[in-house]
Design a protein around this nucleic acid. Structure first.
Lengths: 343, 343
DNA sequence: ATTCATGTTGCATCCGAAGTCAAAAATGGC
DNA sequence: GCCATTTTTGACTTCGGATGCAACATGAAT
């Protein structure tokens, strides 16, 4: 008995397979397959005939069957730790657009906490993604798991430590240096820093850079650690005001959300005018930073270019496995804004 | 010759299949398959042995092979029109969390413009998603395509018109009514409305409701149409100020982003104090609305409950196809804030 | 017309896990 | 210890499309 059990047209459903299309078009299943593979050996006339039949049946090749045999799924895992952060939605939007443009689908994973990563990796493997873009803190052994499985990854605003990994990042150190330089030039001397959680890679980089450049000028800043959110900015400013005895010239927040929280707190709780009585700077250049009420002085990450680079690099590495991990560092742009006096 | 071409252990890779595991554990492939299916008929001792072998090889069942035979992919398509809108990232985060919790993966699609929907549908079909949650404007024939293919969908803050579709939404009309009621009770009489684009379902609902309730009080508001973004709020306020000859009591923005833009514009460009000289209300209850600098008077959508409901309904409909489309309407919560005088 | 190169086509097989079914093993009752 | 149940197990087939290969058609060159 030949294997020709055609899927009977269900009531209204469209479970058409290549066999159904083949029968309707009067060709073999192979022909149908070839009609849908660009560049395959098939006569234009035949392809047309097949496409007509396919349309009539609402046929679409089954990505699962295809992926099984070709070992290409056209899926890319995108892992983002906290989507509610103001910065990531923009990144995600860009990544999704770019990936779509090159024929890849986004399998999205978001984490409530970094501890969920291992669990999440277990959810990724079964889908045999062609690659992954990761904006979350991966430990070396987690990076190695991708490497071992031959799945190319691009770290976004993170870098691999011992284990090699391709990455795209915004130069935090350089951005922070720029801010500090201008703040110092404008005469600020008493600094407070509102930093992020210690497990954030970029957070620590920004903090280190700021401290280093302040230290070079003989300045020891007050430091508060928050959680990268608006509320941390508010609380951070209060803590710093107390710690410094109210004598602050400038506050460096390691991201915009906290800087905005600090601005509102300075105005609302301490009745300070920004930037005359206190300079506040952030980092990222998220949407609200440019709003009229804030006009934050900050470093804008070139999100579009970074996303484009991440996707380009990933595709390259998918097409040509075994490339040496490349790290691309993008310079941020100083948005002068009006929340700090710069020199 | 038996089909026993085992995938040779690549250099460091882990392309282990159930056959590899079977061989190592000294059992048949079927046994391996059963070991990974909860509730399958297998002896505890055997399962343990298999799991040990699987771990050793880094084996994870191939979702593509599994999906092909079971016709369940555990994939859910999530379609969101504009991710850069302040409101959607929160929704997306909730949806992803909830879906993960019930064992489903998110295949994310975002649209740069609504016209891309048809194209995007063509990208969804091959992946045989188990269901879809859609926060974008689907035309009836597009909803029908899902119905025809037997793919359950949940519309998020949208409803189907002619074609039946399950949906989850926040009661825009009721929320807007509440706002108008309180604004009227506080004595406001000269209203301006900053509305969204006409192709937005919730936008039109909010606008209609506001106009209707104002009309009932004999009031004809000035209306401006924007694009749901911060900048539209700024521009909207300027236009309304001109149109009304500067004599506005209250501004109703049909979402928060525009309300925030209007507040900053009122303060910055017209030097008005909010809410003493002008009341401004929004809709959604996004993060920045509660920030100290704004404390927006708005209607907070119960995002968590809505997302939970959307996922629950979708799963129900996946498990039990053919259910009658249900529509769930959630009431919003009035956040009094400080951007409007309420009665 | 014959030969050869080129372009199309169908057959058979494969990808990897799941499910069917009947055989084999374990369990229980007496 | 023997037979009747109940588990547990493995051989084989299935899902749907891609591909190597051989067969076939087409047209050009001789």
């Amino acid at each position: 008995m030949p294997k020709k059990k055609l899927s009977e047209a269900m009531p209204g459903g469209s479970g058409a397979t290549s066999y159904d299309v083949a029968e309707l078009a009067g060709v073999s299943q192979s022909a149908v397959s070839r009609a849908f593979r660009k560049g395959a050996s098939i006569a234009p006339k035949t392809r047309e005939k097949i496409m007509r039949a396919a349309k009539q049946l609402g046929y679409q090749p089954n990505a699962f069957a295809r992926g099984l045999i070709t070992r290409r799924t056209n899926l890319v895992a995108v892992v983002i730790s906290n989507l509610t952060n103001l910065y990531y939605p923009e990144v995600l939007a860009e990544l999704t657009q770019r990936l779509s443009a090159v024929g890849h689908r986004v399998l999205l994973f978001s984490l409530a906490s970094e501890s969920e990563i291992d669990e999440m990796l277990g959810l990724i493997w079964p889908y045999r993604v062609d690659g992954a873009i990761i904006a979350a803190r991966l430990k070396d052994d987690q990076i190695r798991q991708f490497n071992d499985r031959g799945i190319p990854i691009i770290l976004y605003n993170r870098v691999g430590e011992a284990e090699p990994a391709a990455s795209v990042a915004c130069d935090s150190a350089a951005g922070e240096r720029e801010l500090v330089k201008h703040l110092l030039a404008a005469g600020h001397r008493r600094f407070g820093i509102i930093a992020g959680p210690q497990d954030s890679y970029v957070g620590e980089e920004r903090l280190d850079s700021a401290r280093r450049h302040l230290a070079a000028a003989g300045i020891e800043p007050f430091i508060y650690r928050g959680g990268f959110d608006y509320h941390s900015g508010d609380e951070g400013l209060r803590v710093l005001m107390v710690a410094s005895g109210g004598a602050l010239d400038a506050v460096i927040a390691t991201n915009d959300a906290m800087a905005l929280g600090a601005i509102d707190c300075a105005r609302g709780a301490y009745d300070l005018t920004i930037p005359e009585q206190l300079s506040i700077v952030g980092f990222d250049g998220v949407g609200p930073a440019t709003w009229g009420g804030y006009q934050l002085t900050t470093i804008r990450q070139p999100v579009r270019r970074m996303a484009q680079a991440a996707v380009d690099m990933l595709i390259e590495r998918i097409e040509q496995p075994g490339m040496i991990p490349e790290q691309r560092l993008f310079g941020g742009e100083l948005l002068p804004g009006r929340s700090a006096r710069l020199g």
